[in-house]
């Protein structure tokens, strides 16, 4: 490690650490930084009384080939039902407004934004999520292509990208790079792994179409 380098480290401590902040005696400052002021809350915390009326709805649909009979708050989105009720967290919550594509799943083979879909709307439908795309033996060709083409970084958008990509191929929209880019533009990858995603889809499309 050169002296230069060492100096850089010493000079540029970008951290929000208790050690750094508190060692210099500014605990209060640190708390203020996050909006926490010790003296007092606006009022005391009280537990809420249980509501008298608890509307529920019983919904049945198949997820990755397994029938799920679930008792839900009717406001529950398909996304939250999958993640929080059924426990399949592979489908991701990104924006909850159909803007980012992270929550893409297949309903009867077609891609949908599960955040904009109420669970109650998909009664008796077949849902496929990232967990059900491959089988016990092997990954789906699209999953494998994402690995082969280094098509992800943080990976949070990846399940949605893969589900959208499979649908994109099935829809016949993977004919050229430009077409793939257009029909995949509903799925944001903040890491910008777009070149790898496009390459993965081109490659997987060939495999899928035999």
């Amino acid at each position: 490690m050169s002296d230069d380098r060492k100096r850089t480290i010493e000079k540029r401590p970008w951290s929000i650490t208790r050690r750094a902040v508190l060692a210099s005696g500014s605990a209060v400052g640190a708390l203020a930084a996050f909006g926490l002021k010790t003296p007092a809350m606006a009022q005391e915390t009280t537990p809420a009384a249980p509501a008298a009326f608890l509307p529920r709805v019983l919904v049945s649909f198949a997820v990755n080939g397994v029938t799920q009979d679930i008792d839900l708050d009717p406001r529950t989105s398909l996304l939250d039902a999958l993640r929080e009720t059924i426990g399949l967290t592979g489908t991701k919550k990104g924006c909850d407004h159909g803007q980012c594509g992270a929550c893409t799943v297949h309903v009867d083979g077609r891609r949908v934004a599960s955040c904009l879909t109420l669970a109650a709307q998909v009664a008796d439908r077949e849902i496929t999520t990232i967990e059900g795309l491959g089988d016990d033996e092997a990954l789906h060709p699209m999953q494998q292509a994402f690995i082969d083409h280094d098509a992800l970084q943080c990976g949070y958008c990846t399940p949605g990208q893969i589900m959208a990509a499979v649908a994109c191929v099935h829809e016949g929209h993977a004919g050229s790079e430009a077409e793939i880019r257009e029909y995949m533009s509903g799925n944001i990858c903040r890491c910008g792994a777009y070149p790898g995603i496009v390459a993965a889809i081109r490659n997987a499309a060939q495999v899928m179409e035999g």
Binding site: F34, G35, L36, K37, A40, M41, A42, Q43, E44, T45, T46, P47, A48, A49, P50, A51, F53, L54, P55, D73
Partner: peptide, 16 residues
């Protein structure tokens, strides 16, 4: 807010 079924606590904070 308190009447919403499933809500257990409302917690006043200094910033929200």
């Amino acid at each position: 807010a308190r009447a919403v079924s499933g809500v257990t606590h409302i917690v006043p904070l200094s910033y929200g």
